[in-house]
Design a protein around this nucleic acid. Sequence first.
DNA 1: TACCGAACTGTATGCGCATACACTCTCTCG
DNA 2: CGAGAGAGTGTATGCGCATACAGTTCGGTA
Lengths: 366, 366
Amino acid sequence: MQKAATVYDVAAHAGVSIATVSRVFRRPDDVRVSTRENVLASVRALGYVPSASARGLAARRTGVLGLYFPDFDEVDDVVDVDFRYSANVRVEFDIPDSGEARRQNLYFDEVLRGGELQAWRDGFTLMVGVGRGSNPIEMVSDIAGRVDGLALLAGSVPNDVLEHVSRRIPVVLIAGARRDDNFDHVTVANSEGMHALARHVIDDLGVRDAIYVSGPKHTPDDWDRHDGFRRALAESDIDAESLPVYHGDFSRARGREIATEIVASGIPRAIVCANDQMALGIMEVLQTRGIRVPDDTIVTGFDGIEEGRMSTPRLTTVQQPMANLGRAAMWVMRRRLDDPGQPRIAVRLPVSVLLRESSEGFLPSS
Amino acid sequence: MQKAATVYDVAAHAGVSIATVSRVFRRPDDVRVSTRENVLASVRALGYVPSASARGLAARRTGVLGLYFPDFDEVDDVVDVDFRYSANVRVEFDIPDSGEARRQNLYFDEVLRGGELQAWRDGFTLMVGVGRGSNPIEMVSDIAGRVDGLALLAGSVPNDVLEHVSRRIPVVLIAGARRDDNFDHVTVANSEGMHALARHVIDDLGVRDAIYVSGPKHTPDDWDRHDGFRRALAESDIDAESLPVYHGDFSRARGREIATEIVASGIPRAIVCANDQMALGIMEVLQTRGIRVPDDTIVTGFDGIEEGRMSTPRLTTVQQPMANLGRAAMWVMRRRLDDPGQPRIAVRLPVSVLLRESSEGFLPSS
DNA sequence: TACCGAACTGTATGCGCATACACTCTCTCG
DNA sequence: CGAGAGAGTGTATGCGCATACAGTTCGGTA
């Protein structure tokens, strides 16, 4: 790993000019076969790997797309570790717990996976940024200088920073539908999904006293979902004002609290939650109080996290297309790069309502 | 997004030289406060973001570390999608299934998460590569040209490619202990972990007829784990030759097959598996045959995947420190970059034996 | 044999930034 | 009041590659 070989080294070794070396990589067909093989032999002999920095500079594009997340795991307590010195094995009894913290991440994992996949398909490499620490603008600028386009989870960066960055490269916002900016957007059918689920509960299952457990206020996801729920009520001539709404924050813990409140004020026939974690927290408490789901009350969630698929009863929910969010973001980016002048686009991805045992009347045909 | 602003534009706008502009970013304290603010105002006015390509070229380092995985999800069937045109909602009954495919990924997700975290802590950005498609050498060279160091999951790339790349940048191999190369390594205590688990089964639970279900042959992970198991047998004077060994491949499906074979030839007191997926597959079949775990036979796994924590009974296993694998890889890389001349290092990370209900005698004190 | 175009290859230049070095001020001190 | 020391800033150059353009070679044709 002395100092890395450059085109010049390879050219000298192969007895050709640097232009020919460059062509061997960029447009192999423009080089005579014998010359090409000669050059490639030198490449191997010298361990030459083209510098992407030089390439990017000369070609005015990096071939990299960026994906930027808000801080996924709270890492306040991460310490420096000297990995040289470690014990070998620890044996412990593993007590069951909720494992909530880890699951939050699946969302990001899936988006990342989808993004990487689509970037690869379009011939790009993916760079990952996480908005932790003090200075988001610095972090974002850093990554923005490295990529041809940047996709960000909505809310991970203040709008003025986005404006700044977008003067250099295309910016795509994922999940979180703002209409008051000029960025491309990729969102999911939050409102439609909740609407369809609520229609199922109301029409198919005949429930008229469904209460709603909302997410944190002022978040677009929560607003859209609640809107879908309200529309369903209205369509069945149910007065939304007559039904209580509990204000949650998407956390399981808050779900547990809300469950207690609900129990105290009387169990409705259905509890429609703005996300899965709260629904799971609610089911936990209901079950310890001897209230059966779905026999005594129906519980539904939103997101389609793994735990809802493994709970007892399994949770009826609306599955978000997480991987497709990532894919679509890269797809939109590619589209923008191919034609920078085209009008702003907002992609809205479909969701799936998954009917499982936590909602009554579940009778799979198999 | 016309054409992006450069140092020259900013310099002209602020009425200074490009050196001063550069200094404002690189060594702000070397610039008079009034000058600096003047420059920053121009930066904002022009939407200037420094080009990492030019930076990397001039500074001879990119500030990026790479993490390279083997193809995580089989994507043969991935199709191009036009994300503009999508339906909104689909409603469906969700039939329970094993969900095996998705879970394989958690391993990579966790390694990635840890890698990103440590890279960030060390002031680097992370670039992700996935070794899919036809030409690994091309893919690896591509990413190798972009980064200051590259960590790869062992087995994702042929050795000669690694040799080539390592002439340019440091290479760290994750999980898969080869001794016959000159790369830095990060591994887990496979052998010690399995040894400790086996000792628990043999000594604490008094089992003497434990059969072993191995992974794919010739993989270092399998070899090490099997070695730990054999050592435990030997220490208790149990003749390894007297006990059957079933050869698996780490898949749940193969676990199911093996379970059938085991049932046919008589249930032992314990079934020790080289990984969780096979153990879960075995438990599935045993339960449909009316064989109780752990009452009739103990089953143990290795890896610590999420599903083992949610199965019934929960699976006793050895938890791999997946996130720490990623962190340690970046840590080793940083170390190597700081001092290229130092001797080759092999970090071995500790594992945790998690005793859960699938192994008899589980009595948490809480 | 001389000439022409196609196929190749070489030369020269610029991409945007970091930085060594030179230079200009402004103080401070003798 | 002049010299020296910083502090601050500008000039010039190179990082490694892509590529426009010029130059060369070669086979085929008149």
